[in-house]
Simulated assay, not measured.
Amino acid sequence: MISLSDLPLRADLVGQEPYGAPQLEVPVVLNVNENPYPPSPAIRHEMAAAIVSAAGSLNRYPDREALGLRGDLAAYLGHGLAAENIWAANGSNEVMAHLLTAFGGPGRTVLTFTPTYSMYPEYARNTCTGYVTVPRNDDYTLDAKLVLDAITKHQPTVVLITTPNNPTGTTVDLDTIEAILEGSDVLLVVDEAYQEFSSGPSALELLERHPRLIVSRTMSKAFALAGGRVGYFAAAPAIVDACRIVRLPYHLSAQTQVIARVALAHSDEMLAQVRSLAAEARSFEDWARGRGYEVIDSQANFSLIGRFPDRHRVWQDLLDRGILIRETGPAGFLRVSAGTPEEMALLRSALDEIDPTLEGRAS
């Protein structure tokens, strides 16, 4: 049998492990920021009918430009956008891979600010793009001076700013984003994967004035379509055209396209739980503060709590009780996705069962 060490693997991949949060069969899954409410039976039937219809031409390749889906996404976003402003791919992961394939690569750098989304370094690695990070402020926010100073120092081609930020849930205001755009000539990707859960404005408001701005979104979270694998961005048509150059042919299946279009046609219903999930997360944070935990102010559908001297032990103790959360973020913190009221009640009860003197609850 041949082993991985016998193969001519790229040197920078030697010793690397595949990315992936644990996928475990447990009663309460609160680790990957999914929407816990699936599409309604009526929408599922409509999705099934759309797939049956699409199956009549599965012997043919799908629309490689996904123009119908891109048009629907533009209509959903508003702001005068059209299909030529939208790019769609298999989750925001492939969107980011396309962007760094087109605008990164050997001799180029992508800059971001930590702590942030754990996949960013892998996008850079896979596209042979230099990856540079700068710490956020102590409260996990960003300001224009911090970002512009980092741009001057590191000379990136692409800058990634996540708002609300994963894993902290903190946001970046539009004045800061606009100051960064006005003070540099980088391609600025504002990753708004959790924007629907936030009460703040979207960077989409700045697109018309700033042709180097890219606003990335996903249908995995708020739309409860994680299994559908649809991510997208809005930007100037020239940026979309760059991604068209590097995409694989027919990268979005016919099934993916029709499922996403059904979801968008029922966006009000698909997004019906957004406010309740945000409220559930804020309620859990209030509860955690009342128990003495340190809590980061979040505007997403997840919460970051700590500080634990041994966070892995807390994670394991919860898992032993059938509750899966995420061991990620700054040292000593754990991230909790908002679940149903019943799931959050089970989590609170489990945390109360854990001895705080052993698990490091903040005083």
Rank of each mutant, 00 (worst) to 15 (best):
L213F: 06
H266D: 06
A50L: 12
D286C: 08
A83N: 04
R44W: 00
T109R: 05
L181T: 13
S202G: 05
L73F: 07
Q16L: 15
I245W: 10
V246K: 13
I51K: 14
P115E: 02
L248Y: 07
A97L: 05
G183W: 06
V26Y: 13
A260K: 00
L248W: 10
A50S: 13
V172N: 10
F333M: 13
R335H: 01
V186N: 07
V172S: 04
L181Y: 09
R307Y: 02
R60H: 14
Y120G: 01
R361D: 13
F223V: 07
H266A: 10
I354H: 07
T129K: 03
T256Y: 01
H266S: 02
A88D: 02
I151K: 02
T340A: 01
L252Y: 08
T109N: 04
S199W: 02
E343P: 03
N33D: 12
P106C: 07
L318E: 03
I214P: 10
G15N: 09
D185M: 01
G104N: 04
T127I: 01
L334M: 03
C128Y: 05
L248F: 10
I354M: 15
N166G: 01
D185T: 10
Y120E: 01
R307W: 07
T328A: 15
A260I: 03
I239H: 09
R348Y: 07
T218M: 08
F223H: 09
I323Y: 09
T176G: 04
E280T: 15
T112Q: 08
Q273C: 01
G105A: 10
V29S: 11
E25I: 12
P22D: 12
P8I: 05
A48W: 13
F233T: 03
M1C: 10
Q316A: 05
Q257R: 12
A179T: 11
T162D: 03
A278N: 10
D297L: 12
E122P: 00
S118F: 11
R313S: 14
G200S: 12
A234M: 03
L264Q: 03
P121T: 03
Q195T: 11
V189A: 08
Y37P: 00
S216H: 08
G91C: 09
L67C: 06
L67I: 14
F113K: 01
A97I: 03
S92W: 04
A83C: 02
E327M: 12
L160A: 01
I86Y: 04
M96T: 02
R275C: 02
L252D: 11
L358I: 15
K153W: 02
L146S: 14
A345Y: 09
E280M: 15
I151R: 00
N59W: 09
G80R: 09
N31L: 06
P41Y: 10
Y19P: 07
P164Y: 02
A226E: 07
V172M: 05
L318D: 04
A288N: 05
M270V: 10
Y194T: 02
G228W: 11
S198D: 13
A75R: 14
T170K: 03
V29A: 12
